[in-house]
Amino acid sequence: MPLYNDTGNQQSTPGRPSLGRRRFVRQLVLLSLGSQIPWWTACDTAVKTLNTGGVLTASQAEIADFVFDWLLPDDSHGPSAREINAYPFFLWVLQDPHYDPEQQTYYKQGLDWVEETCVEDYNGPFHTINIRQRQTLLDKIRDTNWGESWLASMLTVTIEALLGDPIYGCNPNGASWEWLGHQPGQPRPDEHTRYPIILNRKMEGHPITKIDQL
């Protein structure tokens, strides 16, 4: 749907990337999955220690961290996912109480679907397979409907981290802007105007009668 007049807007719902609600959902291939779940949950301790922000399991965190690397690798051409703090940014997105909760669930579901696919293909959880296998797995997932739509939404989060204001903990020193020759607009957000602080205005109800209250 077009939006005229140089809006530059994608018409996304607050906190929701442009896919809207029509997402592809993974059809479960129920092998002996039920019996396997406790096993890999129990193995969580073996997973690399990543901050899970209280919103991810250790295995979800490990998968997410890898997915960001895969989406925006360290290839000496522009910043990598790690350099732009894609994973911490993702945690911030998941913790945001104003973000669309269904979208947050969708991000996490996708991580579980990756785990499930991994178990189907490699008979073990994601943290047990090597990097080559992980890449092959994600390549394969990208070729499925659900995988492509979920990875696209993860790439959108990555892009937000790549090009967002450093005030959100991403894009340190505006390195990605510099890489792309992009000039950010001024004024940039500060501690009073950044999201979600700016939403506090929605809580003010006093009448305005004077210009000095502007």
Binding site: G8, T13, P14, E160, G164, R188, P189, T193, P196
Partner: peptide, 17 residues
């Protein structure tokens, strides 16, 4: 207020504040 307005894409576009 005018001073509330920034050019932050997260605020204005991505989160449709």
């Amino acid at each position: 207020r005018t001073k509330d307005f920034t050019k932050d894409e997260i605020t204005a576009v991505r989160r449709s504040v």
